[in-house]
Design a protein around this nucleic acid. Structure first.
Lengths: 151, 151
DNA sequence: TTTGAATCATTCAAGCTCGGATTATTTAGG
DNA sequence: CCTAAATAATCCGAGCTTGAATGATTCAAA
């Protein structure tokens, strides 16, 4: 009875809902802390990922977003004088992103805030390891394209 | 040594990344299938949740979004003649959302598409149960507000 | 060297999402 | 009954995200 097709579909939706809920919770965690520093969540993510000089493309990669989106976010950070866009030393197509002194300072405060409390509290080390393993397995299975479905 | 503060922070970020990655994967699953029916992901989610008549507020609840967002999405679906906004029989403030015949048909096709392949393939029943348990525990710990933090 | 493909960043249009304000209606209290 | 608070939906402004073009530059190959 636990393998009822309807039940299974329902269980699946619930599970997906939980994944989304946790993702939302993580996002909120960043969002709240970022807000205390006058940053939006994407801005904070960008700042967090800017450990050293990098190009727009590298940043977009680390932020898991499109380059055009990185342009948008970096524009904001540059207006706040937290980032500088310099010409790339060896590739004239690229820009080199460098934190300003204020950027460095704010980044340190941000990291301290983010590490102070975990969005995954409630899970001990062993549970986290289990979770990681399951997520890796789940993500490894891309669930490719949709059937060409036509009507 | 596995409890190095830096290592731990890194492991945590990786874990958060995995959660986000899986959430993204689930969203893409819906998005791709919805696209084959000429729907966007939010539109498909709305359609999926409209099993029977409901109000805007109820729909927003089920979609896990703000009512104003539900208004936006329902506008689109109404333009496609998939939904009708009727006056609510007992509360003149509210609207009653009802699927049109085309809406009912498209919804059935959508459900079939969504249930045909799981975004969580790669996890067997036992793994899903474990995952569910861990997610419930993780979500149960809200990780409240940020420290009033400074500046 | 010159041509053509690939890459970097940006711009733009479109869509999603939220939060705050507004209007209409219901509900509760005097 | 009348008023005030609460609730349903909507509108609006702002921000995020994507995907498709565009222009500049690099790279590879003839």
């Amino acid at each position: 009875m636990t393998t009822n097709p309807e039940e299974q579909a329902l269980a699946e939706r619930q599970l997906c809902g939980l994944v989304n809920g946790l993702a939302q919770q993580i996002a909120d965690h960043v969002r709240r802390r970022a807000a205390t520093l006058g940053l939006t969540a994407p801005q904070a993510t960008a700042l967090r990922e800017l450990a050293g000089p990098s190009t727009m493309r590298e940043l977009a990669e680390r932020m898991s977003c499109e380059p055009s989106n990185a342009t948008f976010v970096v524009d904001k950070l540059e207006k706040q004088q937290l980032i500088e866009r310099r010409p790339h030393p060896t590739d004239r197509r690229a820009k080199q992103l460098v934190l300003t002194p204020q950027g460095v300072e704010l980044r340190e405060r941000l990291l301290a805030l983010l590490e102070a409390e975990s969005p995954l509290a409630g899970l001990d080390d062993e549970e986290r390891a289990t979770l990681q393993g399951l997520l890796v397995r789940a993500v490894a299975h891309p669930a490719k394209g949709a059937p060409p479905a036509r009507g």
